[in-house]
Every structure is written in C-alpha cells, then in structure tokens.
Design a protein around this nucleic acid. Structure first.
Lengths: 128, 128
DNA sequence: CTAAAAGGTGACGTTGACGTCAAAGGCAAG
DNA sequence: CTTGCCTTTGACGTCAACGTCACCTTTTAG
C-alpha cells in the first residue's frame, strides 16, 4: 500500500526533509496510514523528479504549486497556460544568456590555454 | 577622474548597495577620492556586466573573485583554468537540463492548448 | 551660505529551500 | 519485552545576495 518517505527519498535522491517541505508547499499530498505515516504512490517518484526539474529551472515552489494542475494533472485553463508560457519564455531567455556565457568562458579558456602553451603574456600590462 | 557610485549604478542597472557588496566580496576595487568617495574607471562598467553575467550563470561571488584574474585580467594559471573548465561544464549541464525542461513545457502547452480548443478533456479522470 | 542630493559606514532584515536537532511515537526482529 | 531503525511534528539555523535604515559627511545647486 505505497512506500514510506524513506524509500521515496532513496529512489529520488532527495532528503526526507525536502519531501516534507514539498508537501508543506502543496507540491505533494501523500496518503496517511492509520498511525499517521506518509504513504506515497509509485507516481510520486516521477512527480518528485518533475518538481526537482522545475526548481532547478528557477521556478519557485509557489509557482510550481500553481502550475501543478496543468503540468502534472493535465488540466489547463487559459490563465494557467499564460503563466506556463511566461515561465517557458523566462527559461528561454536564461538559456540564451547561459549559452553566451558558456561561449565566452570557452574563449577565455582557449585563449588562456594558448597563452600557457606559448608562455607568452596574453593581455598583460606592459607598462608601469 | 572617474565616475562616482551613482553613475556606475545607473549605467549598469545595479543598485549602489550591490556595487558596495561586490567590492566587499573582492570583485571591484575602485580608487578613492581624497574625501573617501569611490571613483570608478570606465572599465568598471564592463566589469560589472561580467560579474552580473557570471552571477546569473550560477557562480558564487567567491568563485567569481577567484576566477577574476583569469576572466577579467587575462592572467591564467593551470589551476584557474581547471576551475574555469569546471564551471563551464556545470553551465553546459545546466544548459542541457534547461533545454529539456523548456521542451517539456512546450509540449505541455501545446497539448493543453489543443485540449482547450477542442474542448475535450485530455487526460482527466473519467471515473469517480 | 544653505538646502538638497549623493555618498560613506555600520548593522540588522529578508527570502527560499532546505539542514539540523529535539522529543516522542511506530514497527519488525530476536 | 527490548533493541534499533524509521517516522512524526515543531522549531531554530544556514547561506547568498542583496534591501533597508540610521546617522553622519561630502558635493552640488541656487
């Protein structure tokens, strides 16, 4: 009749503390055993992964909670679709920024590596 | 003889508080006027933008401070190059994760939009 | 010169996603 | 029954990147 919190933690790689926190934020709603222990369905494993993915993408737990009916349960309203599109666009912009940053780091690394190989100072102050 | 903190703030779009914080973290080192006011060179504008870019990419101010000699001043050591490569790879992984997340959001949006248009329930519970 | 705007240094407050600890109850093994 | 691990709730701690406030000095406008 469902796994307990420790097993879900092991299977998702998140701590029990985090799982309780997600519940507190309205992201999970496990059943309870007679003695009050949380019982998670199999689907909770995927659900936690989605949560982690969205958190990692920069959404707040509050935002995720609001979008959950749409993303997880497949229920959509025009308003939720709008919020979703907003977040997707935000991610898109961040994506572009990140790509530029990475390319610049690549350039710096390439240039510096060349500098190290030739032993030549690359862009150093030559005068006092 | 350089701009004062307010002008740098306006030109970079960050608050004066943030600029003082960056200095406290060793990311900026402006000159001081006789009366003790900070005087920034023109180069500080670009410098602040790089700082913001790296912060936005998930680097801590401490990490940025350590990498500054390499990224900003063009001075490289093998160790700094390693740290740089580590950060670039981290950004690369985050980039891939973000792209997947965005694509999934796109799918959700597309599916939900279709659902709304047809008025058909997409993946709803049909039984009680 | 005087008032307003800008700058300086503390120092405490904030926010989000948990970490950590305490006290107490539940659960299978021997 | 006891040992030992798992779970519960509650509450305080953490950390980074600033926000905000107080109080004082400097610079600028008129």
């Amino acid at each position: 009749m469902g796994m307990r919190i420790g097993e879900l933690a092991r299977r998702t790689g998140v701590t029990t503390r985090a799982l309780r926190y997600y519940e507190e934020q309205g992201l999970l709603a496990p059943e309870r055993s007679d003695s009050g222990q949380r019982r998670y369905a199999e689907a909770a494993v995927d659900r936690v992964r989605v949560i982690r993915e969205l958190l990692s993408a920069g959404l707040s737990s509050k935002t995720i909670a609001e979008l959950t009916p749409c993303v997880i349960d497949g229920r959509a309203t025009p308003e939720l679709l709008d919020r979703l599109a907003v977040e997707r666009d935000r991610i898109g912009r961040h994506l572009a920024d990140l790509a530029r940053t990475r390319d610049r780091l690549d350039s710096v690394i390439a240039g510096a590596a060349a500098t190290l190989h030739t032993g030549a100072p690359c862009r150093q102050d030559t005068a006092a």
